[in-house]
């Protein structure tokens, strides 16, 4: 059983106004096979946490650690983190002109596994996952994210999650911009991946809507760069009714 342990993580980012401290001491432990929801108001640092775990160069780690089974993730390159089993489903995946989805998926799978997948089973697996996510067959020959709708981009992220089989997945606002049908399809994909591979999920969201389809074991409320409250699924219900005001009054006076 793998664990991902985030310990006293402080992260800053350079802006035009100077260095801005965003994460101010995050502690979080994820076990494989469990689903943790991170909820919080805009600007509380949820996405920063996601991109820091994945290793985006924009975010500067001031102190703290992120350990995967005792190994320091923060010392790894972005691609080494992915090969170690960490996956980030992005909120705004970029378009990559001229690189087809099928070429991209095969290249990524080869990199993660260290060897090219056997052709026939691989094609069958892609086809199966695409069908389950209600993606058209022509999708595979389109260029990565180019001209994809918001919903198509999210499905494409979850397709990768299913195919690359990471140990931990960070889902950064995967629910944003999805209508209810697409939300269900995407959620089913996440639940399927978890059932098949025993994935651990860090589900980052502003709204409780997606939690109707992906049931969290733990809920962490993120306010001003740290975890303000933690609890079980009942905490999400409370947020649904009360919103984040309760936390904000104490932290951002004026």
């Amino acid at each position: 059983m793998s664990t991902l342990v985030i310990n006293d993580l402080h992260v800053s980012v350079e802006t035009d106004q100077g260095t801005k401290h965003i994460l101010k001491g995050v502690d979080l432990t994820l076990e494989q096979g469990s689903i943790h929801a991170i909820m919080g108001p805009n600007g509380s640092g949820k996405s920063t946490l996601a991109y820091t775990i994945a290793g985006h160069p924009k975010y500067h780690v001031e102190s703290g650690s992120v350990k995967l089974d005792g190994e320091e993730v923060l010392d790894m390159s972005v691609d080494a983190r992915a090969r170690a089993g960490i996956f980030l489903a992005m909120q705004y995946p970029v378009e990559i002109p001229g690189v087809t989805v099928s070429n991209f998926l095969r290249t990524a799978k080869t990199a993660i596994d260290g060897e090219a997948p056997a052709l026939r089973p691989w094609l069958k697996e892609i086809r199966g996952s695409m069908e389950a996510l209600r993606m058209d067959k022509t999708f595979a020959e389109r260029n990565v994210n180019e001209g994809f709708s918001g919903g198509e981009k999210k499905r494409h992220e979850i397709l990768q999650l299913e195919l690359l089989k990471p140990r931990f997945a960070v889902l950064d606002e995967t629910d944003s911009g999805l209508d209810v049908d697409a939300l269900k399809i995407v959620s089913e994909g996440v639940n399927r991946a978890k059932a098949n591979t025993g994935l651990g999920v860090l589900l980052i969201t502003h709204y409780t809507r997606i939690l109707r389809y992906i049931h969290p074991d733990f809920v962490h409320v993120f306010v001003d760069g740290r975890v303000a409250e933690e609890g079980g699924p009942e905490l999400a219900d409370r947020l649904e009714n009360e919103g984040y005001d309760r936390y904000l009054t104490g932290t951002s006076v004026g």
Binding site: A54, D79, V94, I96, A111
Partner: peptide, 12 residues
């Protein structure tokens, strides 16, 4: 572009 591809395990 590089970040996206590397985040999928593809070396730089």
């Amino acid at each position: 572009h590089l970040f996206y591809l590397q985040a999928r395990g593809i070396p730089e």
